[in-house]
Nucleic acid binder design. Sequence first.
DNA 1: ACGAATCGAGACATTAGTGTCTCATGCGAG
DNA 2: CTCGCATGAGACACTAATGTCTCGATTCGT
Lengths: 182, 182
Amino acid sequence: MRDTNVSTETHILEAAFAVFSQNPGASLADVAKHAGVGRATLHRHFSGRDDLIVALTLTAARELDEAVEEATKDCQTYTHALEVALGAILPLAARHMFLATEPAANDPRVAEVYANQTRDLAHDIDMAKAEGAFDPHIPTEWIVQAYDNLIYAGWAMVTAGDATPKQAAALAWRTLTQGTAK
Amino acid sequence: MRDTNVSTETHILEAAFAVFSQNPGASLADVAKHAGVGRATLHRHFSGRDDLIVALTLTAARELDEAVEEATKDCQTYTHALEVALGAILPLAARHMFLATEPAANDPRVAEVYANQTRDLAHDIDMAKAEGAFDPHIPTEWIVQAYDNLIYAGWAMVTAGDATPKQAAALAWRTLTQGTAK
DNA sequence: ACGAATCGAGACATTAGTGTCTCATGCGAG
DNA sequence: CTCGCATGAGACACTAATGTCTCGATTCGT
């Protein structure tokens, strides 16, 4: 098998990220056109819309994992790792955020990915709590929610033209840590 | 004209809130069935999906205004009003949040409503800044974003069963004020 | 150069959602 | 009681999206 498969699939996934980010309700024909492939070719690689959304979700999760892994590999503390990870995730939000409103969480693979991400984040936050970054009396679940939603808030700042990704990440981190400190 | 009109429209709007909150992509037939009315009757009151979404948005905005107005009428400071308003808005988030992802912002009435809400919130935050609640060096736009998204985070806590609305509101307010304090 | 595999384009049938229309029913006002 | 109006049910046509299939062209490996 040639790598044309992989390349075509990548093009389709890239187009899907671009198109669905602008309009989550776009048709598969729009995605195919934007990818520069025929509609039939899209169906050769993804059986339907649901399949495509699942693939996008898994791709997004892998991108996030890689970005966070790369950014935090030299971090000495969980606290610093969370800060650096926030800065790495925020610029990717534009590509991934539309997936949050997709009802694709029925797929077991997607559910597993989401569960893993939430679990890992909760673990890191617990460790950072032990390092003194957060008030131990505040529920870890809240810090998880605040982490995710302040990233979203930062991304909104960026798209509104009110901040650079770096500035938005700094604001989000400051608000999170100072807001949940002892 | 009897009040049957108003009653039917109210039933349809209530059903639409309930159905779209669960599944934003639900069909108008689903809404009509849930409202206990015929599909034709729905079309007699709302010309189509867009019209219905606009009506939902305006209804939601009015509900928010009324709830905030009622909750904050005795507040002496802008800071306290923001805190009380947060507690009033959070329980309504379950009804309204699906509208955030609706592409109905093309309608001029909806756009005006959103602009007004954002402007008023920014104004109140500026006043609260003057009262010392927030660090004046932090962009008001950021505090607006953080306010909205921490409400969303609180609502997520509630739906996950990890907090009561009151607890979630307290966490959101604490995180916001402490996180953006001087 | 040859062959296998993939691709783009387009035809086709199917489905879901939508918008309109008609008609019989029910219910309240007068 | 009767009239009028809103309704529920359902038929109908229209549209957009989807999924499948075929065919000719292209491309890559051998």
